Simulated assay, not measured.
Amino acid sequence: MAAPVPPHRDGEPLTGTPVLVLGGSGYLGRHICSAFAAAGAHVVRVSRGGARGADGDGCASVRLDLSAAGPAELARLCADTRARVLVNASGAVWAGGEPEMTALNSALVDRLVRAVAGLPDRPRLIHLGSAYEYAPAEPGTSVGEDWPTTPTTVYGRTKLSGSRAVLRAAAESDVDGTVLRVAVACGPGAPVTSLAGAVAERLAAGAGELRLAPLRSHRDLVDVRDVADAVLAAAAAPAGAVTGGVVNVGSGRAVPVRDLVDLMISLSALPVRVVEDPARHRARSDAAWQRLDIGRARSLLGWAPRRTLRESLRDLLTAAGVPCPAPRAATPGAPLNSHGKDSR
């Protein structure tokens, strides 16, 4: 007979808690799985390509095409793993077309909440939404959870549809669900579909020139490991604090993306020229400004980002195979520029 599953009680350590992570082999999902495993949870990651068995980080894996899984199959998965915490880190991003984004960001979440609502012993559902679910904001604005949700992109609209499904289930079906709206994640393993990931790949290949779309926007950049910490905080928070609510997860700062690229080049110490090419303008209609108000995360989850952008980008470059020499000590009394380098 299987050992009894320890119930997950609000505010208690996660040791021994069965945790199921959908999209566990993706960028966010990998870090979330590792963080739960480090906290002593029993983690099962679910992904299309994952093989059954234990992985190197101590997590077990289940292979499942989530885009095709129905409510009954998802409910059976929750029951078989005896999940007390269910994290939905799956989804399609910018590189996916509209059908894929609709299937994974919206339709899957509809089926997932129906599956959870029908379970006799429901896990806490933590859904990873996106800052792109919000309407565009004017420069200088901090976007709180009450900001209008009228996104201007297909990605934002499909992510909003999934988030609304979770919030609706919490209101109508007593599902213990919450939405974490995540800013732009960066750090080790960032995908090449992201700006930071693409720059890291080019630097690792020894490119002497980076030809990029115009770098005019500002983004709220948060380390992927800080995102994982926020998920753990949401898993351990009292239900009354998070159920049926939205919590922003970001750095609370707006970083010019040109500064992001310049800092990566500075950290690599490589002689690289940046060319902003208008011909490479992307079809996405991204907002020019993004900065999240993370006060609710501080007050409800006791969470705040711990890693600096410099640390995040250095670890990203190192993971991508780009050596980052130790920074040269500043000359006493010399002014420092925005990246902390001696500017003389």
Rank of each mutant, 00 (worst) to 15 (best):
E12F: 04
P13A: 10
A35F: 10
A39W: 12
G40F: 10
A41C: 08
G49W: 08
G56P: 12
D57W: 04
D57I: 07
R63Y: 02
R63M: 06
L66V: 05
R76S: 07
T81R: 13
G91D: 10
G97Q: 05
T102L: 13
T102S: 10
S106F: 03
V113Y: 04
G118F: 08
G118P: 03
D121I: 13
R122H: 08
R122C: 08
P123T: 11
R124G: 00
P136Y: 05
S142C: 13
T149V: 09
P151Q: 02
T153L: 15
G162H: 09
A171C: 08
G177S: 06
V179R: 03
A190Y: 14
V192N: 04
A200V: 13
A200T: 11
A204Y: 07
E209Y: 08
L210T: 01
P214G: 06
L221P: 05
D223F: 09
V227K: 11
A228T: 09
D229V: 12
L232N: 14
V249E: 06
G250F: 06
A254V: 12
I265G: 05
V272P: 02
V275N: 00
E276W: 01
W303C: 09
R307G: 02
L317W: 03
T318K: 10
G321I: 09
V322D: 07
P323L: 04
P325D: 14
T331Y: 06
S338C: 10
